[in-house]
């Protein structure tokens, strides 16, 4: 009994370690991939000095971030200022705990599910954690005692709360079809076909809201360089800035994984093992987001709010009603 418990504990730690490492590496190399792809879209070369094809660039960035001075403004609220980046990064990483990345393994006769924790309210945990991420941004901007940071934080909070709504509502049809909040069950419900074929509108709403949620171009009002310098992380430097940056890209990976789980069939796919399929799907979503960033200009503040409240949210509600009606007809007949 005790040995089993210890074995399970060790297994959990190993899974956590592997996941965390993969997530951090994925985020770091996503930065490189984004810079490379954006550069090629603008017919430039992009980073190519650190290592072959610039492959060591993330490591160089890390060394730079770690060795830079960690400045705290004199008027800043020191405690909150110090811990806000941790909130932003930690919530982003915690979301990945509920994402299933494959079928179970069988090791020495034990069945090991390839997910850190199969919460039965996994989807709610995801939404809750992504809402908590707002705190990192809001507190960081508030504690900086800078006008730019404060304005950026206010904008981020407004934007993230608005798009949280359509993000959540776009997932309701998925829950209705899968009949469960658990991400493992949602993936299992997509063995025959991924949900994107039956819920394309939901997918589009989720994709747009996800982009707004991580404040990427065209939704980067909170970080609009030309008016707010860098928004809520204007006053941050060194590793604390790095944590905000990391949080943003980890969220990008996580949201890619969630899009894959909710709409693209998770780790299901022919020929290749599940983990590879999940990585391919995350990469595809990330590429789409980079493509959007390379193409579209920034929204105006009011356009942003209009899109969220007057278009996406009503559309998501209508989608829920239609999905419900269709499901009802299917079950009755």
């Amino acid at each position: 009994m005790l040995t089993q418990w210890i074995m399970g504990f060790i297994l959990l730690i190993v899974k956590l370690g592997v996941c965390l490492l993969a997530l951090l590496l994925g985020a770091a190399y996503l930065v490189l991939a984004e810079r490379k792809l954006l550069a090629r879209m603008q017919i430039r070369i992009g980073p190519n000095r650190a290592g072959p094809f610039g492959l060591l660039q993330p490591i160089a960035d890390l060394i730079k971030m770690m060795t830079k001075e960690d400045l705290i403004p004199r008027e800043a609220d020191r405690v909150i200022f110090r811990y806000a980046p941790a909130v932003a990064a930690a919530t982003a990483m915690l979301i990945f705990a509920v994402v299933p990345f494959g079928d179970h393994l069988v090791l020495w006769g034990n069945r090991i599910p390839l997910v850190i924790t199969d919460l039965n309210v996994g989807l709610l945990a995801v939404l809750g954690l992504s809402s908590l991420g707002v705190y990192g941004v809001a507190l960081g901007g508030w504690a900086s005692h800078s006008k730019y940071s404060l304005l950026g934080a206010i904008r981020s909070v407004a934007q993230m709360i608005s798009y949280e709504l359509s993000l959540g509502l776009s997932l309701v049809p998925i829950v209705m079809m899968a009949g469960s909040f658990s991400l493992v069950d949602i993936v299992a419900a997509q063995t025959k076909y991924p949900f994107i074929f039956v819920q394309p509108i939901s997918f589009i709403i989720f994709f747009i809201s996800a982009m707004a949620e991580i404040k990427r171009i065209p939704f980067d009002m909170p970080e609009a360089e030309n008016e707010l310098i860098a928004g809520y992380h204007t006053e941050y430097s060194g590793l604390r800035f790095g944590l905000f940056f990391l949080g943003e890209y980890v969220t990008l990976v996580t949201l890619g994984a969630l899009t894959a789980v909710f709409f693209l069939g998770g780790w299901h796919g022919p020929f290749l093992p599940g983990v590879i399929w999940l990585i391919i799907k995350i990469a595809a979503i990330a590429f789409c987001m980079i493509w959007v960033r390379g193409t579209l200009p920034r929204f105006r503040s009011d356009q942003l709010m209009d899109l969220g409240w007057k278009f996406l949210t009503p559309l998501a509600l209508i989608n829920i009603v239609i999905t419900g009606a269709v499901l009802l007809i299917l079950t009755v007949t």
Binding site: L37, A39, R40, M41, Q42, I43, R44, I45, N48, W291, G294, T295, L296
Partner: peptide, 21 residues
């Protein structure tokens, strides 16, 4: 208008960079 924008960026992705290192 949106699609032409996306098509332009994807076409540029396969063009040779004009950078002179």
């Amino acid at each position: 208008g949106l699609l032409t924008g996306f098509a332009t960026t994807i076409r540029h992705l396969f063009r040779k960079p004009i950078t002179e290192p």
